[in-house]
Amino acid sequence: MSPLNPARVAREFPTRYRLEAARCDGCGAVSFPPRVVCPACRGRKFATVSLEPEGKVLTWTVIHVGPSSHKHEVPYALAVVELAGGVRITCQIADVDPARVEAGMPVRLEFRRIQEDGEAGVIAYGHKAVPA
């Protein structure tokens, strides 16, 4: 069981690389990542949309004791970010003194390395937020 099994990583590329989401044909709710059933209305038909890469910090923490996958990054800011359009994501806030992060802070998503499977394994990319 590795979160960085190549097949497992690859199937997330549309969402992690391009921020692809699904807008429900029935109620318009946007699911990110895309789902089979809309959690808002249980609709099953969707259109592919891309998330706006700008948003603001809703709530945040600074992780001082990290999991082994991120332990050399501590202390790092982790936040729930609300993107323009209302979709919320969990991500790190990079390129900032963690002490300066606060609720309401405007941020923009940037493409970053999220994890790697050691020095020889796959590198998993995705997005982190940076101060806008």
């Binding site: 050399h72 990054e73 390129d95 940037e110 493409f111 970053r112 390395r113 590198i123 990319y125 982190k128």
Partner: peptide, 16 residues
């Protein structure tokens, strides 16, 4: 480059 930056991440941002 920060630990989470490499040639690929910088290329993506520059390309966007």
């Amino acid at each position: 480059p920060a630990a989470d930056e490499d040639t690929i991440t910088m290329s993506v941002t520059a390309s966007r």
